[in-house]
Design a binder for these strands. Sequence first.
DNA 1: GGCGTCAAATTTGTGCACAATCGCCATCTG
DNA 2: CAGATGGCGATTGTGCACAAATTTGACGCC
Lengths: 246, 246
Amino acid sequence: MNEAAIHTILSRLLLGGSLPGGTKLGEHRLAEIFGVSRERIRKVLHRLGHERLLEIVKNRGAFTIEPDLREGRVVYEARRILESGMVAHLADHLTEAQIARLREHVDAEADALRRGDQPTWLKLSAQFHFLLAEMIGNPIVQRQAHELIGRTIMLVKRYETTLGSACGCEEHRLIFKALAGRERGRAVKAMSSHLSLVETRLRPIVCDDAGPSLEALLEEAIAAFRAERGEGASPRHEAPAAPTPR
Amino acid sequence: MNEAAIHTILSRLLLGGSLPGGTKLGEHRLAEIFGVSRERIRKVLHRLGHERLLEIVKNRGAFTIEPDLREGRVVYEARRILESGMVAHLADHLTEAQIARLREHVDAEADALRRGDQPTWLKLSAQFHFLLAEMIGNPIVQRQAHELIGRTIMLVKRYETTLGSACGCEEHRLIFKALAGRERGRAVKAMSSHLSLVETRLRPIVCDDAGPSLEALLEEAIAAFRAERGEGASPRHEAPAAPTPR
DNA sequence: GGCGTCAAATTTGTGCACAATCGCCATCTG
DNA sequence: CAGATGGCGATTGTGCACAAATTTGACGCC
């Protein structure tokens, strides 16, 4: 197993929000699951810590962060600041092709929502913001936006109120319209209030799922990763270990 | 020597821009200079790589980045986007005390400039932006701004045109005035054009100084660091090595 | 004389073993 | 009986040695 692959898998698992906050990710345990040495896991863990997806405590180990709602407030405020700047820039620099692309996306969102296809809509909804960041064409901004949106997804996955996600589509269209009309002020306002609205939809539901074990979740994530890249199973180290004998 | 200390020293050295781009930072060499094991240096180096202050090439080592002017363009664009969002936020949220603090700072800048104290002015000038980021009270935004401003400093130190730095003070005052008057639009505009102006002052001067050796620069940086924290010399590992015998 | 190839040397990457540290639990004492 | 303290188990941190990879220099060939 590649180091980059392990990083990707763990990132997705953490961003997915399926494991409760404060879960400990032991080096030895992960090393066994992935079938690699402890040092490799260690490196990935520290990297994730630096990316703020994990909390590294000296001499204690790596723990999933417990995304407070306080933390949520900070993240959303940061997003309002950054993405306001982003749409202000975009309002002045968007090409016609990009506007068309955005219209397409917003239409797809509306379509998914109309069809009641919530998973697709949820994905598209996040992708809208990724798309905006991408259109700036600035790798730094894109990375910063990526990080913030990722943390938002973690929050939403944990604290989402199901009814809330059904009413946020028109807000994206509002932002799009302002951008298409190159109305900078209105675009900024639309983005800002959109993010504020999304934030208010978070509910302090403490979902102590404590459901599937870390092993099970990881197996699933690894399988999904393998399925995605190269449908064929990677032949190396086909560990004959019993499936989570513990 | 602490690991955090090494990180701080190297950060400052890199941000200082005193060593030419593409300089190789060998692990063994640094380990000897700092008097620690190679693994500790290694960890710090990789961390700096993740912070984009170094470029880590697999199996090749760590190199100081060569800040293109293209790269400069990207950084300044990112700053325009982020700091526009910042001042928009600040215009709505600044307290009277913060406004007073800003006025104080701008006055200090003007004073340093009037006295012809360029080093102080240069420092204050960068600090103005740090101050704005700090006043948001959002650790995420602060970190992002910190990173961008740091990279800017690297650029300015390398490509600065001496005459250019003498004419940027009123721009800060303009931003301040707009903020004090809570005129969001004007503040955004002032910040945006200020950053654009600073960017235009960069000149493609390829300063191949190649002057002092890495060892000399590091010794200096370490000494400065020691002088700053705890005036007393740390007694451990007082290496009697000859001063850069190479 | 230029160029390709090969080998030595230097430098980074990785696994392993040991040391340091932390949390927990039993025990001791006031 | 409550609180403190010391030992114990587990987990992370660190140095060391070896392996892999790249650069550099020289040699021979065209």
